[in-house]
């Protein structure tokens, strides 16, 4: 145990360098996935057949491809078509795209959970579709969608480790490099696991706080 603490002091700065990349990739990919997910969800519930069809197809295709392969594709195949991205850019875009179907389904489930009568009441006072969504459906859908949205956020935090496979020096890659040069596998990977856990706890707490706040209002 003593050895663990003394080694930790030595290894932590190196691992924390990786943490900054993990947070950067996770936050940006999360924002991108949320944006794309919202667009896909709105397309699916729009009632406009071609839009709904396109959204459904995108969701099925992207969800059916492993995130790892999506990252490889963007990092290694796109340059063949003249789109060269840095590893961090490719990681953010790849994870953002890979997670957008899950986000879309979380939002759609929230929207469709709202009673049809709510939409009818909103329409009956002359609201157009955008206003129905903004004033009536979405404020209620958020409460339904929040718990799965929070889980998806934690999943994305952990899957940001996929970025290591395209050379982004985030936490898991730093851990692997450290372990292979020191052979202190136990210490290093225990630290890596604890750091991931430590990052997920605030996310969970924030989500729980948001849920409580929304329930009260």
């Amino acid at each position: 145990m003593e050895k663990f603490f003394s080694q930790s002091q030595e290894y932590l700065p190196f691992l924390l360098q990786g943490v900054s990349y993990t947070i950067l990739v996770m936050m940006c990919a999360f924002a991108l996935a949320t944006g794309l997910g919202l667009i896909l969800a709105f397309m699916r519930v729009s009632g406009i057949v071609p839009l709904a069809w396109v959204a459904r197809t995108v969701i099925v295709v992207v969800r059916g491809i492993p995130g790892l392969v999506t990252l490889y594709y963007i990092y290694f195949v796109f340059p063949d078509f003249g789109v060269a991205l840095t590893a961090v850019q490719a990681a953010i875009i790849g994870l953002g795209i890979a997670y957008s179907p899950y986000m879309a389904e979380v939002f759609r489930a929230g929207i469709e959970a709202i009673d049809r009568g709510q939409t009818e009441a909103a329409l009956s006072i002359g609201m157009h579709w955008g206003l129905v969504m903004r004033r009536v459906v979405l404020p209620q859908a958020v409460r339904v969608a929040l718990p799965p949205y929070g889980s998806t956020m934690v999943m994305l935090l952990k899957d940001s480790s996929l970025a290591s496979t395209i050379t982004v020096a985030e936490l898991s890659l730093q851990g692997k490099l450290l372990a292979s040069s020191t052979f202190e596998n136990t210490t290093v990977f225990t630290l890596v696991a604890l750091i991931y856990l430590a990052m997920s706890l605030p996310l969970t707490a924030f989500n729980a706080w948001l849920e409580r706040k929304l329930r009260r209002s």
Partner: peptide, 16 residues
């Protein structure tokens, strides 16, 4: 719809 209002069987008030 702004000129002809509707009252529903199940009220359909906005709960939030």
């Amino acid at each position: 719809r702004t000129r002809v209002s509707m009252v529903f069987q199940r009220f359909n008030l906005f709960p939030h």
